[in-house]
């Protein structure tokens, strides 16, 4: 036959029955998130900070910043220095990491609600749970990339400039540190992403979500700093309200370090409870919203 059928053609390629139906949502959200201008600018800032910490590892930090580092990084063995720099790095980035989640995740559900896109998802083989997973994991993955790549690079740099020792034993000894860093990055990203997506669902507008999220994150940090002035039975809950600190408490626990000048720190159990609550609350809010969607107007 030389004249082929024109117009509509049926699809012969078949469809898959993917177990992880939320993966396309994550992939699309990740692509959109890492293409944005905000991501690139923040990424540049992260590189600058990582270089600074690399320099700290390489030189004697106590000599460079005698006041700031007193009782902090100086006069320690190189193993300790490595772990402390990692903890210090986490603290340096504390204010910036939530911004990544905020810029990437603020529009996620809100934009879908505003352009009435939810029915387009839910009339496909996508459950409300898939939708939630996809919408949360996308900003979480972007945040984890922005935060984790420099972090892991710092570990690698630390291993490369180890002081007069064979590389393998040193690297082996610091494998738990790497694990701790990866876990910390994952928990941080997931918690921030959960909160931002929850707010995006509740607020329904991108800008409003950003404001609310900044309020939750930086407000939580304020409450932690002022917890000392609160009555004793309120102090511990207040201390646990800063998500960033909660995630860092986990890191410190795993690295077995204490950083001075960090303000009041919550107990590990309260930190874990708050982080888990954020994720569960997000699931509840987003799934409920997706369930209640009407496909017709």
């Amino acid at each position: 036959m030389t004249v082929h059928a024109r117009g509509y053609r049926r699809h012969e390629g078949g469809t898959e029955r993917p177990r992880l139906r939320f993966l396309p949502i994550v992939a699309e959200g990740y692509r959109a998130g890492t293409r944005g201008k905000a991501f690139r600018r923040l990424g540049l800032l992260f590189v600058v900070i990582v270089v600074f910490h690399g320099v700290m590892l390489y030189l004697d930090p106590a000599a460079l910043f005698p006041r700031r580092m007193r009782g902090g990084l100086g006069q320690v063995t190189s193993d300790d220095l490595m772990r402390r720099v990692l903890a210090f790095f986490a603290r340096s980035l504390a204010g910036l990491v939530p911004l990544v989640a905020m810029f990437v995740g603020a529009g996620s559900v809100a934009d879908d609600l505003r352009s009435r896109a939810l029915p387009l998802y839910l009339v496909r083989p996508v459950t409300p749970t898939d939708y939630w997973l996809g919408k949360v994991l996308a900003p979480a993955a972007v945040t984890a990339t922005a935060y984790g790549v420099p972090f892991v690079a710092l570990v690698a740099f630390g291993v490369l400039i180890r002081p007069s020792e064979e590389i393998l034993p040193f690297a082996w000894r610091h494998l738990p540190s790497l694990g701790a860093v990866v876990l910390h990055v994952g928990v941080t990203a997931l918690a921030y992403a959960s909160v931002v997506v929850t707010l995006s669902t509740l607020v329904g507008r991108r800008i409003g979500t950003m404001v609310a999220f900044a309020g939750v994150v930086y407000g939580g940090e304020m409450l932690r700093l002022f917890s000392q002035t609160a009555p004793p039975d309120l102090a511990e809950p207040l201390r646990a309200l800063s998500l960033g600190t909660d995630a860092r408490v986990l890191l410190h626990e795993m690295l077995d370090v204490t950083l001075e000048h960090s303000g009041p720190q919550p107990a590990v159990t309260s930190a874990v409870a708050v982080l888990a609550a954020c994720v569960l609350l997000g699931a509840l809010v987003v799934v409920r919203r997706a369930r209640s969607v009407e496909v017709t107007s």
Partner: peptide, 20 residues
């Protein structure tokens, strides 16, 4: 229901759009 949705195409009335 998931198999049904694989075999059904639905065009909503609302002015739905995937943002961006």
């Amino acid at each position: 229901r998931l198999e049904i949705r694989r075999r059904v195409g639905y065009m909503p009335e609302a002015d739905s759009l995937l943002p961006g």
